[in-house]
Simulated scan of single mutants.
Amino acid sequence: MLEDAALGALGSLAESAMDEFWPFYGIVMPYLKFTVVTAKADSDYLLVANSLKCIAVIAVVVGKSMFYADVDDVVRDLILLQESNSGNDGTVRGYLLQAWGGVCRSLGVDFLAYLSVSVPQLIQSAKRIDYLTDDVDSDDKRRSIILKEKFLACNTIGCFAAHINRGLHMWIKEVVDAVLPLINFKLDERVRIAVATGNLSFGVSLSWIVSSILINSSKDVYTDTQIHTQAHTNIYWNIAI
């Protein structure tokens, strides 16, 4: 618990410090990579995932040129985490999805090389329907974790679309199949907004994916999506300004 809190604080500090954090990268990154190694040895997948998420946050802050030397190690750990016994833990996968998004933001178009190992996980998480099962329906916490995972998957797809330009074209059918049913997802507004607007935290849109969805949706669905999208867009720009 203490380590998780420390990782969260470190990531927040890096985001706040921005350029001023650069001189500390060489000190912090070896520690974080060591944390990943020891957590893997202890099969502490949650700590592994949280450490990788923190690394990805810092990678965004310092940029591609500084992060590039560590990319292969980080991606290797992300892949191992995906393939680990943490497959049923939505919290771990939530951190994993955010880490993929951070690495993509840091690398930009150079992230194309890693689409084949990251996109399938995003699609799998976006398409989860096990929140409908009886045992989950009676467990609010577990259901909340699954719905958050769906939201993060859609959010990260938006991140990929924004930062690698049209690099997702090879996955367009799979992506649309995953997000299309969620344009009017009634159980979590965050999912609907993520699908309709891509990733608002980056101020970009996934319109090239969802425009046809909105056009072909019923008038009520379109109007509802417009209202919520405009509201969240206004919130984003007010904060950004």
Rank of each mutant, 00 (worst) to 15 (best):
L2C: 03
A6I: 15
L7D: 02
G8Q: 04
A9L: 15
G11A: 09
S12W: 11
L13N: 05
A14F: 02
E15D: 04
W22Y: 15
I27A: 10
P30L: 06
T35V: 07
T38Y: 07
K40D: 12
S43G: 01
V48C: 10
L52I: 04
A56G: 06
V57M: 09
A59P: 03
A59Y: 08
F67Y: 08
Y68M: 14
Y68F: 10
D70K: 05
D72E: 15
D77E: 12
L78M: 15
I79W: 13
Q82C: 11
E83Q: 15
N88P: 01
D89W: 00
L97M: 08
G101Q: 07
G102D: 07
V103W: 01
S106C: 15
V109Y: 14
F111W: 01
S116H: 13
V117K: 00
L122H: 01
A126K: 00
R128S: 08
I129P: 00
D130M: 10
D130S: 11
Y131K: 00
L132H: 10
S138R: 11
K141Y: 13
K141T: 11
F151A: 08
F151R: 05
N155C: 08
N155Q: 11
F160N: 03
L168D: 03
K173Q: 12
V176T: 07
V176M: 09
A196P: 02
G198S: 06
V204W: 13
S205Y: 12
S218E: 11
D224Y: 06
T225M: 08
N234K: 13
I235E: 15
I241S: 15
